[in-house]
Design a binder for these strands. Structure first.
Lengths: 143, 143
DNA sequence: ATATTTAAAGATATTTTTGTCTTTATTTAA
DNA sequence: TTAAATAAAGACAAAAATATCTTTAAATAT
């Protein structure tokens, strides 16, 4: 479904969003440890999220990462789009270049319904809600 | 969503299923050309489908591949399972090992609905129905 | 100013996936 | 019984994804 990079990205964003509002920024090491991901690889992914303005970063002592803007307005769809691109939203399930409503691949209509379901879910699932459930101990970031 | 190998597999199965019932078997070259896939790589994939008893193969002149059993009873789910395994049906969206109803990852419930939709669709979509639509010119295997 | 802490950038390495090539085995037909 | 046609198997190659390492840049605190 998602690349590993994308899974790390979602996990990392949820972790950062779950931290107390007025707390310190989260450093790379802290994030990688929290989500059980390889540190250097995670750094690359965070850089991409910063480039796409989903995270802010600061160098130096007490530097680190924080959510850019309101976690309420950041969706899973944005994170996925940043790391995996939008083929998952728009691409043909069978990989055909010219698959469309007018010229559908053999599974086009069946998959369209699933894809629309997936897309809708991702667009309407925001970081704040997810982070709240993590903080309430209702869901978990590892193990 | 699916690996390229899996996409080739689905396409190939649909192509073979779309051939006339009493016709010749389809050879590797014919299949690869029909679905626009690399020949040698396609060969590996077809071998796997034969191992998993979704296809029959025969060597020698007039050899080739044919659907094993009734195309009515072969589902997309079986083809996907043969090539990509069943992580797409059962795996955690965020890649967590211990994600379950009792110990859900942060997006577990949201994704469960989508995954169940996907799984149900794949389980209820059989080759015969798809092949029929290809034969009727309602859907297309390439371009 | 300098040392320390941190992220960014870029080079490199490893693993997985995708793809190819060569050889072997089997079947058919002449 | 030999030649041709085909898939199977296995070795190899290329590309992409994942992961690491090294150097640089920026910020802070002393």
């Amino acid at each position: 479904m998602f690349s590993k990079a994308c899974k790390y990205a979602i996990n990392a964003m949820i972790y950062v969003a779950s931290l107390p509002e007025n707390g310190q920024r989260a450093g790379l090491k802290e994030i990688a440890k929290a989500i059980n991901s390889p540190e250097a690889f995670t750094a690359k992914i965070l850089q991409q999220l910063v480039r796409d303005e989903l995270l802010n970063s600061a160098k130096g002592p007490h530097g680190g990462f924080e959510i850019q803007g309101n976690p309420n307005t950041i969706t899973i769809a944005q994170i996925v789009g940043s790391i995996d691109g939008d083929m998952i939203f728009t691409g043909c399930a069978l990989g055909l270049e010219k698959c469309s409503e007018d010229h559908p691949c053999p599974v086009h209509h069946k998959f369209k319904a699933v894809r629309d379901h997936l897309t809708g879910m991702m667009l309407t699932t925001n970081l704040k809600d997810i982070a709240t459930r993590v903080n309430d101990g209702i869901s978990f970031l590892k193990y």
